[in-house]
Design a protein around this nucleic acid. Structure first.
Lengths: 136, 136
DNA sequence: CATATTGCGTTTTTTTAGAAAGCATTGTTG
DNA sequence: CAACAATGCTTTCTAAAAAAACGCAATATG
């Protein structure tokens, strides 16, 4: 399951995508509309900013907005950023790989199936973007 | 990611499947061979037994063995039992469904994509069984 | 300068994962 | 039936992670 953090992130991103990139949106506005704890959301948005997905402006008239187009932000990117691996096992992860002690990879039936699962997931999550979440 | 618990469970099930259903295997043997903490494994096997996947015999010559054929135990069953939902969101889960507050399901783009992900996962995890993990 | 807003390190609280302990129960065998 | 060999089950502990809150610093605007 996705963590609350990642779920909140998607809610916020959908809200921002819906608003367009023209004028900044207040953290407080997003928090209120999407019912997300303010300070928690603050941290989430900051992470999204540091990852280059969002941009922010301080002071009056400030707020958050997309740094790139929503259609260029795959869901997989957001999930990896906030939740870590998409794979079900470390030994099949592309971005968070860890060697599997005690198992001869390549001949491990378990690993093979989990690779299939990863591929099936990525096929969707790398292709679908934030833009796909907002067009109804 | 799968929890350690579920990973251990699959290791143990693979070991048992490999041994055949004829004679019981000691918890201690599995724990040693697969390097799983003994008492933790005890609990895991017990859960698998209570779910009807394994069977056990006490006393001398006792141990664990499959209650049904490994080819009749889909991976999804084990995962749901020990880790809960396979879906990424409660509102798309078939077995652990929870209503999504604040979102008009059916028209929620996020939910729709997550449903696709769930289906892609289940297509594999419901079809593949323990037997598929052990044949090399 | 006053005000509005994000930035960010710290701390707190809650939940979950992982594991260990200990005794109860059941089965086997001589 | 005694002794031993296993699993059964409840409880407890610990550590890590997730979720959230706090407070002040930094920065932009008018």
């Amino acid at each position: 399951m996705l963590s609350k953090k990642t779920q909140y992130a998607f809610q916020a991103l959908m809200y921002l995508a819906d608003k367009g990139r023209e004028e900044p949106v207040l953290i407080a506005e997003i928090a209120k509309k999407k019912k997300i704890p303010l300070k928690f959301l603050e941290n989430i948005l900051l992470e999204l900013k540091n990852a280059g997905i969002l941009e922010s402006k301080k002071g009056k008239g400030g707020g958050y907005f997309f740094a790139q187009q929503p259609k260029d932000v795959p869901l997989a990117k957001v999930m990896r950023l906030l939740d870590g691996p998409i794979s079900l096992l470390p030994c099949v992860s592309l971005y968070f790989y860890e060697k599997c002690k005690n198992c001869d990879e390549k001949n491990c039936g378990f690993r093979n199936v989990m690779s299939q699962v990863r591929d099936a997931n990525l096929k969707i999550l790398e292709k679908k973007t934030i833009a796909d979440l907002v067009r109804n």
